[in-house]
Simulated assay, not measured.
Amino acid sequence: MKPGVLVISHGSREAEWVRLVEEAVAAAAAQAEVFWLTGLAGVGGQTGDGRTPSVGSRPPVTGCEPGIGVQTGDGRTPSVDSRPPVTGSEPGIGVQTGDGRTPSAGSQPPVSGSEPSIGGQTSNDRRLPVVSSFLEIVEGRLIQDGLDRLEAEGVTELYVLPLFVSSGSTHVDDIAQAFGLPPVSPARAGELEPLRCGGMRVHFGQPIDDDADIAELLLANIRELSEAPERERLLLVAHGSREAGFFARWRGGMTRLAERMRQGGGFAGADTAMLLPDQAACKLRALQRKRPGQNVIVVPLFLSVGYFTRTVIPSRLSGLQYRYNGRAMLPSPYISQWMGGQIAAWLENRDPNRIE
């Protein structure tokens, strides 16, 4: 079984967003490939930063062809339907960005053709293909394009990693349903056409939610705003959702992330607010009324700087006192570290000898 990884993020017309995602995925791919190659050599067991990946929450890897099925990281089992075969371009080798570029040599481990084979594999067979794709807008780089590329690379076992803030995102649900998984809410059908997975077995991963690496990232983002954390409160603000089932997922992940930040930064408290429904101003007013002696630092939970961080959040909080710098999650090495850790944990748990 040849493993491969497809990282999926939201689309954008801004070239800067595409560049930021490409750079983060390339760095994560290099980190994951170090783990993959050393693991094959019997040396592995750690992510690129020396941490041992968590394995307890990883369900068995299944697939997306009839009779195989797909399973998501939260344990949902899909309905099974027929999928036509996928054809692709000539296979390339190695860690690649979605447009076929290979990350610079300085960001990935060298793999020479003279290396001894491991387990009967040549050095080329041992490379771990990692491709980034986008939900929409970016022509030639959509999800099906990424699947086609990975199938052409010979991938038979696929890890799909959604680069999104929350498992409450309806976009994540749309993607999961396109892979054949059931909806989060029976009342909401997915907005994407079914994807063609070829013969690949697929494991659907989980978005960020309350990951410890991201808590560290956000603490670093607001460090300049904090003067006396014991007299300050955090207000995490994210997109959110009004829809049944999705609101609770947003709230749960945000609440856990806020608590990680409170503990990690030594803050007096941490609260959350969504833009949908419109909670931000109401939550901030309530905090200032109940805790008049505490300053509030507003923390945006967005992957990229843009309309929501520059315009929506400041306009919703207009006239209120708070500290805010509008910094988003990218660019940051923590995002690559999170992705690399997720990929490494999947590689640690996959059973390469399993036969469907």
Rank of each mutant, 00 (worst) to 15 (best):
V305R: 12
L236G: 11
V55G: 10
G44C: 04
S332R: 07
L287Q: 13
Q31N: 14
A28M: 08
G92A: 09
G146A: 13
Q71M: 14
D213L: 13
S114F: 07
D148C: 11
R256Q: 12
V296D: 00
A281Y: 01
I175P: 03
Q121W: 06
G4N: 04
T52E: 10
C282G: 09
I222W: 00
G245L: 08
Q31I: 04
S133Y: 08
A15C: 02
I335K: 08
M1H: 11
R260C: 02
T309R: 02
S169N: 04
G168W: 06
P84Y: 00
V70E: 00
G63D: 03
I208P: 06
N349S: 14
G252S: 08
Q206F: 00
R188F: 11
I118M: 01
R323T: 03
F308K: 01
Q144A: 05
V299M: 03
N221E: 09
Q342E: 15
Y324S: 05
G154T: 11
E191H: 13
D209Y: 05
S133W: 01
P129Q: 02
L257T: 08
E230G: 07
F164M: 14
Q46L: 15
L276E: 15
D210V: 04
T38C: 13
G306D: 01
A27S: 15
G168I: 07
N353S: 13
L236I: 07
S332K: 06
A273E: 03
L135A: 08
G119T: 03
V61T: 13
I222N: 05
D351I: 10
V18K: 12
G190M: 05
P333T: 12
P66A: 02
V172K: 09
G45D: 10
L218N: 07
D210N: 14
A238C: 09
R242K: 13
T311F: 09
R196S: 13
I143S: 06
N124Y: 02
R310G: 01
V298Q: 02
M1D: 10
A41R: 14
M261C: 12
V160G: 07
D271M: 00
I355W: 13
E227I: 14
T77W: 05
H10N: 12
N295S: 15
A345Q: 08
L276Q: 14
A28Y: 06
Q294Y: 11
P331N: 12
F204E: 02
G266R: 07
F134N: 04
G98W: 01
Q342S: 09
H171I: 12
T47S: 10
A258F: 01
W250N: 03
S132D: 15
A228Q: 15
Q337M: 15
G113V: 00
S226C: 13
E227Q: 15
Y159F: 15
P194M: 10
V34N: 08
I297V: 13
G253T: 07
R141C: 06
G266D: 05
V111M: 04
T311H: 13
I343N: 04
R285M: 09
P110F: 06
E193S: 15
G168C: 11
L276V: 14
A105M: 12
P78C: 04
G11F: 08
Q288Y: 01
G106I: 08
Q206D: 02
S117G: 15
M261F: 02
S336T: 09
L225E: 10
A270V: 00
C197P: 03
F134T: 07
V237Q: 06
R323V: 06
S112Q: 08
N349P: 00
L195R: 01
M274L: 14
I8D: 05
S185P: 03
F179D: 03
